[in-house]
Deep mutational scan, measured.
Amino acid sequence: TYTFKVDNKDQAKKAAKWAKKLGLSFQIEKHGDTFKITVQ
Rank of each mutant, 00 (worst) to 15 (best):
40 Q>A: 12
35 F>C: 08
17 K>T: 08
34 T>D: 07
31 H>L: 13
29 E>W: 06
26 F>D: 00
31 H>E: 15
9 K>A: 14
30 K>A: 10
22 L>P: 00
15 A>K: 03
24 L>R: 03
33 D>H: 06
1 T>Q: 11
17 K>P: 00
30 K>W: 05
14 K>T: 07
36 K>R: 12
4 F>T: 02
17 K>M: 12
10 D>P: 06
8 N>M: 03
27 Q>R: 12
21 K>W: 09
26 F>Q: 01
22 L>C: 15
10 D>Q: 13
39 V>P: 00
16 A>Q: 09
6 V>P: 01
9 K>L: 14
4 F>W: 11
1 T>V: 12
1 T>K: 12
39 V>L: 08
8 N>V: 03
5 K>M: 15
27 Q>T: 14
11 Q>E: 10
21 K>F: 07
34 T>R: 11
38 T>F: 05
32 G>T: 02
26 F>K: 00
34 T>C: 15
31 H>D: 15
1 T>F: 11
29 E>K: 07
32 G>I: 03
36 K>V: 15
19 A>H: 02
23 G>V: 02
21 K>D: 07
19 A>F: 15
27 Q>A: 09
11 Q>G: 07
24 L>Q: 02
36 K>H: 13
13 K>F: 09
8 N>K: 05
27 Q>V: 13
14 K>D: 05
23 G>I: 02
3 T>D: 04
13 K>V: 10
26 F>P: 02
29 E>T: 11
11 Q>I: 07
3 T>P: 03
33 D>P: 08
26 F>I: 14
3 T>C: 14
37 I>Q: 00
6 V>I: 07
2 Y>P: 03
19 A>T: 01
35 F>A: 01
18 W>N: 02
4 F>H: 02
20 K>V: 07
12 A>C: 15
26 F>C: 12
25 S>W: 10
31 H>Y: 12
5 K>E: 15
19 A>E: 01
36 K>A: 09
25 S>K: 12
28 I>S: 03
34 T>H: 14
33 D>R: 06
31 H>I: 15
8 N>L: 05
1 T>N: 10
3 T>F: 09
32 G>M: 05
10 D>G: 12
12 A>M: 10
14 K>G: 04
15 A>V: 15
24 L>E: 01
23 G>R: 04
18 W>H: 04
40 Q>K: 11
13 K>A: 10
27 Q>D: 06
5 K>D: 12
6 V>Y: 06
23 G>H: 06
22 L>N: 10
31 H>S: 12
35 F>P: 00
7 D>E: 11
29 E>H: 06
31 H>A: 10
40 Q>C: 13
4 F>V: 04
12 A>V: 10
37 I>D: 00
23 G>S: 04
6 V>H: 02
24 L>M: 08
3 T>V: 13
23 G>E: 03
4 F>K: 02
16 A>H: 05
17 K>I: 12
25 S>P: 06
17 K>A: 12
31 H>G: 04
17 K>C: 12
8 N>P: 02
38 T>E: 03
15 A>L: 14
38 T>Y: 05
36 K>T: 14
37 I>F: 08
33 D>L: 07
18 W>R: 04
17 K>F: 09
17 K>E: 11
40 Q>N: 10
38 T>W: 05
12 A>S: 03
25 S>F: 09
23 G>D: 02
40 Q>M: 13
29 E>F: 06
37 I>W: 01
19 A>R: 01
27 Q>S: 13
19 A>L: 15
38 T>K: 05
13 K>E: 11
7 D>N: 13
21 K>N: 09
36 K>S: 12
6 V>D: 01
3 T>A: 05
2 Y>E: 03
31 H>C: 15
38 T>H: 05
17 K>N: 09
13 K>D: 13
33 D>V: 07
34 T>A: 14
11 Q>P: 01
4 F>G: 01
28 I>N: 01
22 L>T: 04
38 T>M: 06
2 Y>L: 09
3 T>W: 14
19 A>Q: 01
14 K>A: 13
9 K>M: 14
33 D>G: 08
2 Y>Q: 03
29 E>G: 03
18 W>Y: 05
16 A>G: 06
13 K>C: 15
38 T>P: 00
26 F>N: 01
8 N>I: 04
11 Q>K: 10
28 I>V: 08
12 A>L: 12
3 T>Q: 07
35 F>N: 00
30 K>V: 09
21 K>S: 11
10 D>M: 13
17 K>Q: 12
40 Q>V: 11
12 A>W: 04
1 T>E: 11
10 D>K: 13
4 F>C: 15
30 K>N: 07
12 A>P: 01
22 L>Q: 08
30 K>Y: 06
2 Y>K: 05
20 K>L: 10
36 K>M: 14
37 I>K: 00
32 G>S: 03
26 F>L: 10
30 K>P: 08
28 I>Y: 03
8 N>A: 04
24 L>I: 06
26 F>S: 03
30 K>F: 06
27 Q>L: 11
39 V>G: 00
22 L>Y: 10
4 F>Q: 02
20 K>E: 09
6 V>A: 04
36 K>P: 00
22 L>H: 13
25 S>Q: 11
39 V>I: 14
8 N>W: 04
2 Y>T: 04
5 K>A: 12
21 K>Y: 08
26 F>Y: 09
19 A>D: 00
34 T>Q: 14
30 K>S: 07
21 K>R: 12
17 K>D: 09
7 D>L: 11
2 Y>C: 15
16 A>Y: 10
34 T>E: 12
25 S>N: 10
37 I>N: 00
21 K>M: 11
38 T>A: 03
14 K>S: 07
9 K>H: 10
1 T>H: 11
